[in-house]
């Protein structure tokens, strides 16, 4: 770009646009200037025909969609950057076409992974061990119930481990799920050592020749060091019964959680090496867009979504569907 093009805009930001001549054209122009002033992302207003730049109205709409879906400022900026690069090359005709390109760009940031049912055979002679972690109230126990149901339907033998020995009636809750689904459960008294419950569960599953073990853990906020250390202790104990266990650490995130989910993912990963995500409560109005940044930054795939409180309400995460709902109001 020519130097003078840069300089000539030096003052246009501070300028109060007067509207004495009130031609349609100018009003429109002012409106877009006004919009730019409030737009989060400083971008150029360019009235070049052919649209190799995204115009401000579109940009504002995109900004609102991304932000209100909890995608966050940083990831939104990244998405818009990618979009602009694409548009520079490929140009676009109208807003619909722009939206399609945008969807594709977002999808590319998402990592997905396949159903655990298909991975269970990857271990031989031992049960495939899944440990479920997350902050309080996100839906860990419920997701375990749903998973157990799914595995059982696939003909797998499942054992649950009630390693949340802290929250009131947490064991009872998982017991009810095990009865509902019709799978075995290993438990101890409330207040007992969760690592010992995990140990017992895997041993019991070995002796029963079970295919899958799912360990429930107490919800914990990721900034509580002691509780996070407890989690790595639970994890390390599993290793002593079955090498490489747990085979999967599933982090459960609530779709209504905002930017704090990024910190959750970081902290849980650093303690337990999370290798997939379940995003719950997508049956509500929350969009769960924060997983885009998590998936992109930490390269943790999203595996499942929760869409209700019943045992059938677990689905595989599907990029296209997920991204499409960001744009449906």
């Amino acid at each position: 770009m020519a130097f003078f093009d840069k300089i000539k805009n030096l003052f246009n930001n501070n300028d109060k646009v007067s509207s004495e001549e009130s031609s349609q054209k100018q009003k429109k122009l002012e409106k877009s200037l006004e919009k730019t002033k409030t737009s989060l992302f400083n971008k150029i207003t360019k009235t070049v025909v052919g649209k190799s730049k995204i115009d401000d109205n579109d940009l504002d709409d995109i900004e609102e969609i991304l932000i209100t879906s909890d995608i966050g400022v940083e990831t939104s900026l990244k998405i818009i950057d990618r979009l602009e690069k694409r548009v520079e090359k490929d140009k676009y005709i109208n807003s619909d076409e722009l939206t399609d390109i945008l969807k594709k760009e977002i999808e590319e940031l998402l990592v997905v992974s396949k159903d655990i049912t298909l991975e269970v055979d990857s271990v031989e002679n031992v049960p495939y061990v899944i440990m479920v972690v997350g902050v309080n109230g996100v839906g860990k126990t419920t997701t375990i119930g749903k998973l157990a149901h799914k595995f059982k339907k696939a003909g797998l033998k499942v054992v649950l481990g009630a390693a949340d020995t802290f929250r009131a009636a947490a064991v009872d809750q998982l017991v009810i799920w095990s009865e509902r689904v019709g799978v075995d459960i290993v438990k101890q008294a409330m207040g007992s050592d969760p690592a010992s419950v995990a140990f017992d569960t895997i041993q019991s599953a070995m002796s029963k020749n079970a295919d899958v073990v799912i360990i429930d853990t107490a919800g914990r906020l990721h900034n509580k060091i002691n509780l996070m250390n407890e989690l790595s202790k639970i994890k390390n104990v599993m290793n002593k019964v079955v090498t490489n266990a747990p085979h999967d650490v599933l982090l459960v995130l609530d779709a209504s959680t905002g930017q704090n989910a990024i910190e959750q993912a970081k902290q849980f990963s650093s303690v337990t090496q999370v290798n997939s995500l379940a995003l719950t409560k997508l049956d509500g109005t929350a969009k769960g867009g924060v997983v885009i940044g998590i998936s992109d930054q930490l390269q943790i795939p999203v595996r499942y979504i929760g869409v209700g409180e019943g045992m059938e309400d677990l689905q595989m995460f599907n990029k296209e569907d997920f991204v499409n709902t960001l744009f449906n109001n």
């Binding site: 300089i7 805009n9 030096l10 246009n12 930001n13 400083n42 971008k43």
Partner: peptide
């Protein structure tokens, strides 16, 4: 930093200087 400077931001945001 360009985006942060009043009066300059938009003009040079996308430009390599």
């Amino acid at each position: 930093l360009a985006g942060m400077i009043p009066g300059v931001g938009k003009a040079i945001k996308d430009v390599d200087i």
